[in-house]
């Protein structure tokens, strides 16, 4: 698949997936700059659309982490936007979805993994955050650690597997059946791209929310004014 192709640049091997991801970054940045300037040209449909989409994403984050949605929303929104655009890139003839590359999805999963700990440590502190691995019992520490690794692997492989299988299925149908036959499959690709992006972002949000919820529970347990004690 795509990981076998690439080119050399300044002594580094740049894979096509990475190149496509960089292009997506440039494209999104240019679009963001243009849209950011376009937003304040009075009332227009694009501004309304941008505000609606951003408010929708912000509300989704707020439902999970109501106290920290302002810090978490940029990460989750960026994940959704990047993964959606990356998934839909596979529909363009000659291009492949960067998310069909395990290195890309693994990088995203590692970012989510690090983000969970970043938000947890940031809002609770290192000591209190690490304590939640020992709760409710220190015996569960290995399971917590295994859970951290496995869910990150699952996050990466789920997205990679779905997108790679979609492209491969479309390629196989195209080879077997011929031109225009894979069109329904491409329609399915669109739905699958949106669903997988949504799942990836929601899972990341849930992981972060779980960490922050643990922080909140620990804060409540350590608080002397806790009415539950």
């Amino acid at each position: 698949m795509s990981e076998t192709s690439g080119f050399m640049l300044a002594g580094f091997y740049i894979s096509n997936a990475l190149f496509t991801a960089l292009c997506i970054t440039l494209l999104l940045t240019a679009g963001a700059i243009w849209l950011g300037r376009y937003l304040f040209n009075g009332e227009n449909n694009l501004r309304t659309l941008a505000e609606s989409i951003y408010s929708m994403m912000q509300n989704a984050v707020r439902e999970v982490v109501p106290q920290y949605y302002e810090q978490v929303t940029p990460l989750i929104a960026t994940l959704w936007i990047f993964v959606v655009v990356a998934n839909l890139t596979g529909l363009i003839p000659g291009l492949h979805s960067p998310t069909a590359d395990l290195s890309i999805t693994s990088a995203l999963a590692v970012i989510v993994f690090l983000s969970v700990h970043w938000f947890g440590i940031r809002h609770l502190g290192l000591k209190h955050y690490l304590q939640h691995y020992l709760s409710p019992s220190p015996i569960l520490l290995p399971f917590h650690l295994i859970s951290e690794v496995t869910r990150t692997l699952a996050l990466a492989i789920r997205l990679f597997g779905n997108m790679m299988s979609l492209e491969m299925a479309a390629l196989l149908v195209l080879l077997v059946a011929g031109f225009l036959v894979p069109v329904p499959l491409l329609m399915l690709h669109i739905i699958e791209a949106l669903v997988q992006a949504y799942i990836f972002g929601v899972l990341a949000l849930l992981y972060i929310g779980t960490a922050l919820e643990n922080n909140q529970a620990l804060q409540n347990n350590n608080s002397p004014q806790n009415p539950q004690e």
Partner: peptide
């Protein structure tokens, strides 16, 4: 299906840069 460390690292940097840029400009 293999994990390319360079792609992995560049993608992490790419995503962080994208996060900063979108946060800044969008």
């Amino acid at each position: 299906m293999s994990l390319d460390p360079l792609t992995f690292i560049f993608e992490i940097l790419n995503f962080l840069v994208l996060l900063w840029l979108l946060k800044r400009f969008l």
